[in-house]
């Protein structure tokens, strides 16, 4: 890397840091204004017992994640363990290229929300890779707003890759906003096109198995991921690779190695460690409380009060 590019990168990083700090500062100022000029509820004891714990935890987690993002942008490194399902992206695109068949990417039934946006981010990574090999990726949507965003993002990906003429308008499709109408349409598409690889990322319900079995019938390599816990067993049973739990949100960080995304991932891990610590503390306190109840009834009341406030903290946070 040349000195000039290093300098430019450092300047960009500094600017981004200042920018992010300003935004975070704005949040603090806005909150302070709200507290002082809003309703006087915050001055009452009820507010502190009922509302503060949950909001404090959300704020603390946000601060931890933002802190790690800033650290990563300033050059901090982050290790991300291997996620087999995402390592298979190269394999799926390569297989489709060799077989001369398309790839299908289902964005699920969700509307414009975090889950669908994450699915779209993964889809765009697959599409950018497929553009390099000249392989078709057919994206299917069940929400017209998601379709509009996906269509624009895919068009932009082709333009950025220098191949706007290769973009086929029919490759981003709105099928239906009805669950089983979408499922039957996507299933028909998979069977007619005899796809080489089938991706299913997003919000899925009962149609998950219908799509996965359709992919299985044509012998496609299948990669699926959803944060809907009830659908994970169906994907595990019928897909080659399944992204489980928070791997779903780690996918873009893993695929792109962007400092912001990696930093966010490390911040989330720190939050999990904090949660783990609080759970351990809660277990110890509950155990001690139960022990003291037998040994010394007087002391037990104090510890019980502490335990109940701790339980409240978690209930509020949920």
């Amino acid at each position: 890397m040349t000195q000039a590019s290093t300098s430019t990168r450092k300047r960009g990083s500094d600017l981004a840091t200042v920018e992010a700090l300003c935004l975070a500062g704005l949040l603090v100022v806005a909150m302070a204004l709200g507290w002082f000029f809003g309703a006087g509820y915050w001055r009452t004891a009820e507010y502190w017992s009922k509302f503060v714990a949950g909001r404090a935890i959300v704020y603390a987690f946000s601060a931890m994640i933002l802190g790690q993002i800033l650290f990563a942008r300033r050059g901090g490194s982050a290790f991300i363990r291997r996620i087999p399902g995402l390592t298979a992206v190269d394999q799926t695109v390569g297989r489709a290229t060799e077989m001369g068949r398309p790839i299908t990417f289902s964005l699920g039934l969700g509307n414009v929300e975090i889950i669908t946006l994450q699915a779209l981010a993964i889809a765009l990574h697959v599409i950018r890779m497929a553009i390099r090999f000249g392989t078709r990726v057919i994206v299917t949507c069940a929400d017209p707003t998601v379709y509009a965003i996906a269509d624009e993002a895919v068009r932009e990906a082709f333009t950025a890759a220098g191949r706007p003429e290769s973009h086929n308008l029919d490759d981003v499709r709105f099928l239906s906003d009805r669950q089983f109408a979408y499922a039957s349409s996507a299933m028909g598409l998979i069977l007619r096109e005899r796809v080489a690889s089938n991706y299913m990322f997003g919000r899925f319900f009962a149609e998950s198995l219908i799509l996965a079995e359709a992919g299985n019938q044509v012998g496609a390599i299948q990669v699926a991921g959803t944060p809907i816990i009830t659908q994970i067993p169906f994907f595990v049973a019928s897909c080659d690779y399944t992204i489980i739990g928070d791997e779903y949100y780690a996918a873009t960080a893993y695929l792109t190695r962007e400092p912001v995304l990696s930093g966010s991932l490390v911040g989330q891990d720190h939050c999990k460690m904090l949660i783990l610590g609080l759970i351990t503390l809660g277990v110890i306190m509950a155990t001690v409380s139960a022990g003291l109840a037998q040994a010394s009834p007087g002391l037990e009341n104090d510890v019980s009060a502490l335990v109940s406030s701790f339980e409240k903290l978690f209930t509020e946070a949920k």
């Binding site: 944060p227 739990g245 966010s264 989330q268 999990k272």
Partner: peptide, 10 residues
């Protein structure tokens, strides 16, 4: 927990 934190981060 993991999903909630992932959604918060995103």
């Amino acid at each position: 927990f993991g999903l909630g934190l992932g959604a918060l981060g995103m």
